[in-house]
Design a protein around this nucleic acid. Structure first.
Lengths: 234, 234
DNA sequence: TGTATTTTTTTTGTCGACAAAGAAAATGGA
DNA sequence: TCCATTTTCTTTGTCGACAAAAAAAATACA
């Protein structure tokens, strides 16, 4: 069981609590362990983590800042719903960022960037081999995040990270249904991207980034049109 | 003294305090009333606003989430420094967003969007006429934010808003030196943009957005190379 | 039985207080 | 006088408690 919460009330370092709660909650939201629309109770979380409501609250504020939870004034805070109506806009932004970050990585990457990128790709590849859907999704996001970091534009990288986070939830929907269908293809595409980046072939990097993004978008779109009975309310 | 804080301790509605502090602090940061690098004291703010540290803290957490303040663990939190080293990256992102949002506005705007955009343009024009530098900067950002909103892509709009916010600080530096130099030109350019958006001329909107962005970038660049003795530490 | 009103419950927003973590100041020794 | 160590001071991080708001339940009335 991954969700074993026999939380021993261990001594925590001052200030580490917020990050702990934030990271865990963020992961649970992005992995859809916390269903969109479900309520979040502060006191319950406080009990679960063995701490006061204050640090919990701070973590929630940060999550709200990223749009991962929504907080009705004076009333319950809940996990944000996936904005299906906004998906065209999302995909538009995502593909553009795929292009821009890959292109910039080809231009500005340094030697050690490639090491990190290859590491992420190895992790992704391992997750695919292990058929671990959750790990695939997370490591895929990490891979592209590393590409963005190599592009040396913090503004794009931040924005892209946010998009990838939101994307994790949609990909989770995807892999819930089609489980281990064609991720091998993504491994190959990642390899191509790495090659283009290493060769500093900006045009090719741009093309591959665009193709990779549109690929994913198309897959998700196909899922949503074929299997539109989701256990999540719009 | 602009900072006259004879704050009468008036009754506030529950939950309004955070927004109050957040908005005011954000404005003060973006207008450079709070100097980058200067320390922020929670108890002082609490006294100033006549409330407890808790809502102050929440406002600070949100500001930190947007990168407007930085918080050293256990030690003072301070207004974020302007990242001059990252300026090329910033300008790159800014110009791209000028293009994308203007282009999308031309595609997707609706009738009432234009009303709002014209309103913002009127406010900007008024600020220029009144030679009110701070108002010029703020209303200029509002104008482009309205354009982005008309583009109907919340992801771009959010990102662009963040960039424009950061830009307000740099523009503030600009107008501190060159005061009321050539904003009239911007008014005209805004009018051209409005016309292109209204005509749904995507190509022209893209071109104008790009030109407008590069214009501003060039201005700031010229300032920084000519007058590099800033009263702000890197 | 159905609806309006009151009461209770639940959950958030705010507060004051205290402990921890550094930084600054004070002390002591050479 | 200079440096190391201890002490004080400042500022944050966390806590438990209480009040406000809204929802849910209970009550009263037709």
């Amino acid at each position: 069981m991954t969700n074993d919460d026999s939380s021993q009330i261990t001594e925590r370092k001052r200030g580490s609590g917020v990050k702990l709660v934030y990271d865990l909650l963020r992961d649970e939201i992005l992995d859809l362990k916390l269903v969109p629309g479900s309520a979040i109770d502060e006191v319950q979380l406080a009990a679960r983590f063995g701490m006061s409501r204050t640090p919990i609250r701070e973590a929630l504020v940060r999550l709200a800042g990223e749009g991962l939870i929504e907080t009705l004034p004076n009333r319950s805070t809940m996990v944000s719903n996936i904005d299906f109506l906004g998906m065209p806009a999302y995909f538009d932004a995502l593909v553009l960022m795929y292009r821009v970050t890959t292109r910039l990585a080809a231009q500005h990457h340094r030697a050690d960037d490639l090491l990190i990128i290859r590491e992420r790709q190895a992790e992704f590849s391992a997750a695919v081999a292990a058929q671990d859907a959750l790990a695939m999704i997370a490591t895929n996001a990490d891979f592209h995040s590393a590409i963005a970091a190599a592009g040396r534009n913090a503004y794009y990288a931040n924005f892209f990270d946010r998009l990838l986070g939101e994307g994790r939830r949609m990909l989770r929907l995807y892999y819930q249904s089609y489980e281990d269908r064609l991720p091998a293809r993504y491994v190959d595409e990642h390899e191509e991207i790495i090659a283009a980046v290493e060769a500093r072939d900006v045009t090719e990097a741009d093309r591959l980034g665009k193709a990779h993004g549109e690929q994913i978008v198309e897959q998700i779109g196909r899922l949503l049109t074929r299997n539109d009975r989701l256990d999540i309310d719009l």
